[in-house]
């Protein structure tokens, strides 16, 4: 019986660590100052004066094939270490002040496993102008259905 408090503390600690690990990929942890809404991005893309960002899709390939933002480059799922590596390789030679937008849209925002690792990687590399496209539900509902510019295929 005397071990119960210690056991309970260990279990509680493990639960907290598990919760932290589960939250580690959650896009909701990205600071709001590093987010951009779909309508804001569309305005930038349609503007003749605004600096165009490098747009990187860090989600599943099959989603990219079906629909993606015109000009967006496919990187792949950043929940996969290989995806993060492809992201690092792609941006390695760029100026750290480059305007980069990352997006996924596979899942509701809080469940997206890809945006947060991609954001973290770019920040770690020193990029200062990184925005994550805030997609509340999924790319279909929050981009395609809204009538925003869309491309298909590779």
């Amino acid at each position: 019986m005397k071990h119960l408090p210690r056991t309970a503390a260990i279990i509680a600690g493990m639960a907290i660590m598990a919760a932290l690990a589960a939250n580690a990929y959650q896009a909701s942890l990205i600071p709001s100052s590093d987010l951009i809404n779909p309508d804001e991005l569309v305005k930038i893309l349609q503007s003749t004066k605004a600096t165009k960002p490098l747009i990187l899709q860090v989600g599943p390939h099959i989603l990219y094939l079906q629909a993606h933002i015109p000009g967006a480059e496919y990187i792949g799922s950043a929940s996969d270490p290989q995806g993060v590596q492809r992201l690092r390789t792609r941006v390695q030679s760029l100026s750290r002040g480059e305007f980069i937008v990352i997006y996924c849209g596979c899942c509701p925002w809080n469940h997206c496993p890809n945006v947060k690792p991609a954001h973290d990687a770019l920040r770690e590399m020193g990029f200062t102008k990184v925005k994550a496209l805030y997609i509340a539900e999924n790319f279909g509902a929050n981009w395609v259905v809204q009538g925003y510019p869309t491309a298909k295929g590779e």
Binding site: I62, F139, G140
Partner: peptide, 16 residues
């Protein structure tokens, strides 16, 4: 394992 073509044949699967 799905393909883009099959997903599109079902109206597009752009969220799960």
């Amino acid at each position: 394992m799905c393909t883009g073509k099959v997903a599109e044949s079902y109206g597009g699967v752009l969220g799960l």
